[in-house]
Nucleic acid binder design. Structure first.
Length: 269
DNA sequence: TTCCATGTTCCGCA
DNA sequence: TTGCGGAACATGGA
């Protein structure tokens, strides 16, 4: 689940529940999600600090800890991570808690990661992480206009879906939202990037921004997404919400790919 | 019980 | 060199 829109919703959730609160206690599970940092340093770094602000880049969430060093907590959610806040006192029946922060006011903020592909880190600056992990610009960065977007694909061989999923090209898209974007742009996922001119790439850019923004507005709840989207009915054999086609599941770039073979035939030149 | 999964990374190969 | 396919990672849910 955690692609750009999901992480943005997590971000807004942290903003709404946990900002400007002072950390009283920190508990790290068995530390398997920790990335180049010890459980002890996470605990000592956070304790007494305040969560001041959040920043998202692609699928990474950064939480600013105010004065002191290191200044940022970095969370990546893998395939199944999320966050949850609650008031301590009632039974803590929350499963898969990997990092638990208790604030001075008694509220708690937990980082959950059932399938353990996530990452917890401490960094000096989000830009450091972006560079270190070779992330491209965030997919919703306003500076990534259609021209800059098209430039990211220049000289690239291979298929469009692979390129869109490559975090070093654009950061934030994953399997599900790439399928949605290609579905709406009426492009086959195997379309060669080299076969697309700048105008076509500009159209993909527009569709991408619209899809991501609408998904965030819908709080990534498929029930609140437009009926003509692929996402709420992403399953082989169901009717295409845009034409008379039947949705089909295939494998592209190593991932399960759902598409409508009828209106996603086109390989643009 | 078996299969599959939204992410990332690594390896072998073309 | 680039990109692809496949496997691996850990675990829960269908």
């Amino acid at each position: 689940m955690p692609e750009l829109p999901d992480v943005q919703v997590f971000r807004e959730y942290v903003d709404a529940t946990s900002l400007h609160k002072t950390v009283d206690a920190v508990a790290v599970d068995d530390g398997r999600e920790l990335h180049r940092v010890s459980a002890r340093s996470v605990a000592t770094t956070l304790r007494g600090r305040t969560l001041e602000a959040t920043v998202r880049h692609g699928k990474h969430l950064f939480i600013f800890l105010g004065a002191g060093a290191p200044r940022w907590l970095r969370l990546h959610f893998g395939m199944t991570g999320s966050v949850r806040a609650w008031k301590a006192g009632r039974p803590d029946d929350v499963d898969h808690v990997r990092l638990l922060v208790t604030f001075a006011d008694g509220w708690r903020l937990a980082y959950l990661c059932p399938r353990r592909f996530g990452e917890i880190g401490l960094v000096g600056d989000p830009r450091e992480s972006v560079r270190e992990r070779d992330l491209g610009p965030d997919a919703l960065d306003d500076e990534l206009d259609r021209g800059a977007f098209a430039d990211r694909f220049h000289g690239r061989r291979g298929g469009l879906k692979s390129a869109l999923m490559d975090q070093s090209v654009i950061a934030g898209l994953g399997n599900v939202y790439v399928d949605e974007i290609l579905f709406q742009a009426e492009l086959h996922p195997k379309t060669a990037v080299a076969a697309l001119d700048r105008r076509s790439l500009g159209r993909v850019h527009g569709v991408m921004r619209r899809v991501l923004k609408r998904a965030i507005e819908a709080r990534v709840d498929v029930g609140r997404m437009p009926r003509r989207w692929l996402l709420p009915r992403r399953e082989a054999g169901r009717g295409c919400p845009r034409c008379d086609g039947t949705l089909q599941a295939t494998n592209v770039a190593g991932r399960t790919t759902v598409l409508c073979p009828r209106h996603q035939q086109r390989v643009e030149v």
